[in-house]
Nucleic acid binder design. Sequence first.
DNA 1: CTGTTAGCGCCTTCAC
DNA 2: GTGAAGGCGCTAACAG
Lengths: 358, 358
Amino acid sequence: MVHANQRANGGSTDLFPVRTTLSDVAARAGVSRSTASRALTGRGYAAPAVRDRVLAAAEELGYVPDANARSLKARHTPTVGVMVSDLRNPFYAEVAAGAASVLRGQGYTIVLVDDARSDLEEMAAARTFVAMRVAGVLLTPVSAAPSQLILKQGVPVIEMDQQFSRGECDAVLVDNVTAARELTEHLIGLGHRRVTMVTNETEWTTGAGRLKGYLKAFENASRPVSDDAVLCCGYEPDQIEKLIVELLSARRRPTAVFATNNLLAEAVWRQATKLGLRIPDDLSFVAFDDSPWMSMVEPGITTVAQPSIELGARAAQLLLNRMTKPGRPRTARLDCPLIVRASTARLSRRRRPAAVAS
Amino acid sequence: MVHANQRANGGSTDLFPVRTTLSDVAARAGVSRSTASRALTGRGYAAPAVRDRVLAAAEELGYVPDANARSLKARHTPTVGVMVSDLRNPFYAEVAAGAASVLRGQGYTIVLVDDARSDLEEMAAARTFVAMRVAGVLLTPVSAAPSQLILKQGVPVIEMDQQFSRGECDAVLVDNVTAARELTEHLIGLGHRRVTMVTNETEWTTGAGRLKGYLKAFENASRPVSDDAVLCCGYEPDQIEKLIVELLSARRRPTAVFATNNLLAEAVWRQATKLGLRIPDDLSFVAFDDSPWMSMVEPGITTVAQPSIELGARAAQLLLNRMTKPGRPRTARLDCPLIVRASTARLSRRRRPAAVAS
DNA sequence: CTGTTAGCGCCTTCAC
DNA sequence: GTGAAGGCGCTAACAG
């Protein structure tokens, strides 16, 4: 008996496996391809007996329909592109996991890209998503370009964590301003005046929002912001370490430090410890984005917890929504609960800078 | 001027965007589709002037070739399926990241699935990979089934971390036996005899290997294994916590605990701390798989570090290799360096059980 | 209820 | 150098 599948492979050692196709199944069941298709998909008529024969044939042959062919025909794909900045950072991994679990529940396959925070990679991935004709895209952007490219193709995009295309697509963010304000107010309430915010950058959504909250707290308290208020140190590990060491070993170092994410928090904590600074006696310390270690070290770190999983999940839901009904772009903002632990303490009199002793 | 793209969309509000196709580009450039194709792909002849015209047209139209159509024609896809047990666990996230960076460098797109350690999800993902005609698959399996299904379709598979299809496909593992043995020998060398190994399971690669290493250490030292040697507590968080509390609060608790992965280590550590056990005075503690917190808590935790990123990267390289040349399946085993910190101390005389005071 | 026909978007001979 | 023709695997009309 001759397989319908008697292609090229007649002798050449092909590197690509020969797959059994609908034709193979149809031939084996002794029906036409359309009938086989109807039997398999369940759409359209097929006599019970025939249906069973086709199903049996498919089973025996280990037939798996070609998703590429299906997508081509259907002119859409049950696939969603997800792009995050750095899978190795638990925050992004959790965002991805949150999105994945929702999407998977709705039958979508996920194409996940870790763009290593590079705009080139980001653009390449965006192009790939478009090429694959994904049904939608979720991303934590590092620039506006990828969202633009994808939106221009009529594909729905949801920006997560960072917003670069305000008004042009949905976004799910964290309430950076409020959370940063609360964290800072907590410090101010403890008597701290010289609080340095350590951040990667201050221009985009997260950095800008956290800075805004920080400043607002001082403003609300009618307190001037100290001159060494913000330490902006980029993303390069060596540079970060260097600047933090400088900050902490300066003669007039701050009485409190606010690290704007888990990586910076780890860096600050490690350097402070290495320099022998006692927390909170010598230095009060707060961080944005709770991590396991923050509740394990002694003293525990006061933080605001980002709902990372929920952020991914919400973004996924927004996307599912957006795919069925268009409408004005919305941006959702998630709350970050303040968790007070023991890394923050009232500023002791003798540590308060003399000049400010009102 | 009439667009070649004058399909259905003539008035119905279609949910799926209309993409510009090769025909559109060809029409705009005033050439045939074949010529446009040649100009765009660079394969085959095309007069320079024509080529430029086509390229310009493509650019203006924002043309992005349909990957589905290409794959269908080419009968293969520049895509690799990657499946891990739990993205939220840094170990798996790093494995995925390691694999991704290598694969991306070779122009492959990654379809990443977090199977939530469910064999149903695993099988569903395996089927999806086959349906997508991925060029290969990397996975951290929880059963033999998915690898089997994929291999049967002639698609190369590399098992990572856990091995279920020995002899049938490549695998990249960690040298569990050696690392666990070293960790245990370290404890024995400090005088510990009653060492409990806390593990999720003992039947598969990692659990079995780590148990074997543990037993071997005792065997090499000609010491009997204590009766409360192994605490096997599954994957369910509540159950894990319950069993650990029982273990640590028992009257005759072990003098040392060996946690076989980072999650269990965290659970043990948290319970020990909550129960007021001092490490290492009351309890020596070692863990398999280094995590950031292990070098941050006081005292630091003695561990073996798993090269998770490298594991993913090696798997990716093996896959790239396997895709070009077949051959006998190989399994690579990566070393895990021992990192001695301060969570382990010599067993003090008075803590040594009287019965064993030889 | 079933088979025939046609076409999704692309690429690749093969004539011209 | 270029275009026409055919087909990758699948499915949706439409006849029968």
